[in-house]
Computed example of a mutant assay.
Amino acid sequence: MGQISNVVIIFNPEKLTDLRRALKEVGLSGMTVTRVDGNGLQGGTVRYYSDDKVEVDLLPKIKVEVIVPGDKVDEVIEVTKKVLKTSETGAGKIFVYDVSRVIRISTDDEGLDALNS
């Protein structure tokens, strides 16, 4: 079985359509998208409601997970950076994890066969 990775991308919601389109262009149509709240180096933000100052510690983010063969990881990372990169802190993060086993339930295929069938 070849290497398989889980690429997790956390970023600002307004870039979701662009990222989905770019990943599809490199042949990745399967992904899991989750709406999450969090903060990193940028911390929170200050908002005003009826002249009351409110500190918001957790900001809305999107988490995309794609399971890919090891030879596609660098391509996914480069496409993601191209779409999401800004000069602002808080543009996002990419995490890559090894996947020890993948099984397609409907066919019992495992490993790369489970990804490609």
Results as ranks from 00 to 15, higher is better:
95 F>K: 10
90 G>E: 09
43 G>D: 08
88 E>C: 00
30 G>P: 02
30 G>W: 00
73 V>M: 05
50 S>Q: 11
3 Q>T: 13
61 K>Q: 07
2 G>P: 09
47 R>P: 02
35 R>W: 00
2 G>M: 07
86 T>W: 00
111 G>F: 09
103 I>N: 08
68 V>L: 04
44 G>I: 09
111 G>P: 08
80 T>P: 01
7 V>L: 06
10 I>D: 02
108 D>H: 11
25 E>V: 11
67 I>L: 14
53 K>N: 07
91 A>I: 04
93 K>H: 00
88 E>G: 01
18 D>W: 00
35 R>H: 02
85 K>E: 08
65 E>G: 09
44 G>R: 07
35 R>A: 01
78 E>A: 15
33 V>S: 02
6 N>P: 00
70 G>R: 05
62 I>T: 11
18 D>N: 09
66 V>T: 13
6 N>Q: 14
107 T>G: 10
16 L>F: 01
108 D>K: 15
83 V>F: 04
73 V>F: 05
76 V>L: 03
65 E>H: 05
69 P>C: 04
82 K>S: 15
117 S>P: 05
21 R>E: 14
107 T>I: 06
67 I>Y: 08
60 P>C: 10
105 I>H: 05
109 D>M: 11
112 L>A: 07
106 S>V: 07
67 I>F: 12
1 M>F: 03
97 Y>M: 15
50 S>P: 00
16 L>E: 13
92 G>R: 04
23 L>C: 08
59 L>Y: 01
23 L>F: 05
110 E>K: 15
3 Q>K: 12
41 L>Q: 09
30 G>A: 11
53 K>F: 04
30 G>M: 03
113 D>H: 13
22 A>E: 14
12 N>H: 12
86 T>C: 03
102 V>M: 08
6 N>C: 14
33 V>N: 03
68 V>N: 05
11 F>E: 01
63 K>G: 04
17 T>G: 08
16 L>P: 02
96 V>M: 12
66 V>W: 01
109 D>L: 13
